[in-house]
Amino acid sequence: MTLHFSKPTGEEEAFLPRHLADSMPFSSNKLPEIYSEFSVKPGSSEAEAIKKTIQECEDTERQGEERFCATSLESMVDFSTSMLGKDATAVSTETDSTERKVYRIEAVTKLSSDKPVVACHKQEYAYPVFYCHKTDTTVAYRVSLVGAGGSKADAVAVCHRDTSEWNPKHLAFQVLKVKPGSVPVCHYLPENHIVWVSKN
């Protein structure tokens, strides 16, 4: 299959220290303060991205899912280990190419057995924020891929076994031409997203 693993553009931002992240306003009713804090012009594309991220973080949880927006590395670790236990480990996609290539699968390893996983997705924000969610119906895999010219990717793929609670307008349903809850939906994760799995 033809895949494109995008790397983060520019320098990778570091998490804010927890004490600093916790002192920052982070709610939809504090948007004017947030815009002022980061010199963001209301109505700009950056302001809209901040607003969207906060709205997603405040959105109602789906059935069978627990969610949390991590504004620091410590808060991400705390949430993930509280969901999976102290032996939880983080995995992410690693690749040596950012070009669109045809890859073939060399090996697939199941990472998460039948236990829940926590997936953390990088959000657009003024500093690193990850939208993390624990689901009981998602399975994670490590997929070794070899591309044209010998390039390699050690990719993380997740399969959502129950999509019945998803928005019917979700892009996956449009692409696959299926309805919520009808089939599992699997996808690869970009490099700056993280999946936490339990070792046991």
Score class of each variant (00 low, 15 high):
Glu61Gln: 13
Val40Glu: 12
Lys41Gly: 11
Val91Phe: 14
Glu13Lys: 12
Pro190Ser: 11
Pro184Cys: 02
Val175Ile: 11
Cys159Leu: 04
Lys30Leu: 13
Pro168Gly: 00
Ser112Cys: 01
Cys57Trp: 02
Glu94Arg: 10
Gln55His: 13
Gly149Asp: 03
Cys69Thr: 05
Ala155Phe: 04
Lys199Met: 08
Val197Glu: 10
Val139Lys: 06
Thr93Phe: 00
Glu191Leu: 04
Lys169Val: 09
Ser164Ala: 15
Val195Glu: 01
Val197Tyr: 08
Leu20Gly: 06
Thr98His: 09
Ser28Val: 04
Thr137Glu: 13
Arg161Gly: 10
Ala88Asn: 06
Tyr188Ala: 01
Thr135Trp: 05
Glu33Lys: 13
Glu66Ala: 09
Ser144Trp: 08
Glu12Phe: 07
Ile34Gly: 04
Asn167Lys: 05
Ser182Pro: 10
Lys122Asp: 11
Leu20Ile: 09
Ser80Pro: 10
Val158Glu: 08
Lys41Tyr: 10
Met1Glu: 14
Ser75Arg: 03
Glu65Gly: 02
Ile54Pro: 13
Asp87Val: 02
Lys51Asp: 15
Lys101Gln: 15
Phe26Ile: 05
Ser144Asn: 15
Glu99His: 13
Gly149Ala: 01
Lys199Ser: 13
Glu61Ser: 15
Val77Ile: 11
Pro42Tyr: 02
His193Glu: 10
Thr81Asp: 04
Thr137Tyr: 13
Lys52Val: 09
His193Gln: 11
Ala47Leu: 07
Thr137Ser: 14
Lys177Met: 05
His193Arg: 04
Ala49Asp: 14
Met24His: 12
Leu16Cys: 07
Phe26Thr: 06
Thr89Asp: 14
Val158Arg: 03
Gln63Ser: 15
Val129Met: 12
Leu16Ile: 05
Ala47Trp: 09
Thr93Trp: 06
Gly149Cys: 00
Ala157His: 02
Lys86Ser: 12
Lys115Asn: 03
Gly181Asn: 06
Met1Ala: 14
Lys86Asn: 15
Val77Lys: 12
Thr98Cys: 06
Ala88Ile: 00
Glu66Thr: 12
Lys101Phe: 11
Trp196Asp: 07
Thr2Cys: 06
Glu13His: 10
Ser39Val: 09
Asp96Phe: 01
Glu58His: 07
Phe38His: 08
Asp154Ile: 00
Leu16Glu: 12
Ser39Cys: 09
Val102Leu: 14
Val118Glu: 03
Ala153Gln: 08
Val158Thr: 11
Ser198Ile: 01
Thr135Phe: 01
Ile194Val: 11
Glu94Val: 10
Pro190Ala: 05
Lys179Pro: 14
Asp22His: 11
Tyr131Gly: 09
Pro32Asn: 10
Gly10Thr: 07
Phe26Ser: 05
Leu31Arg: 11
Tyr141Ser: 00
Ala153Pro: 09
Ser28Ile: 08
Thr95Phe: 03
Met83Gly: 07
Glu124Ser: 14
Glu37Leu: 12
Ser112Glu: 01
Arg104Val: 11
Leu171Glu: 14
Pro128Asp: 12
Pro180Ala: 01
Cys132Lys: 04
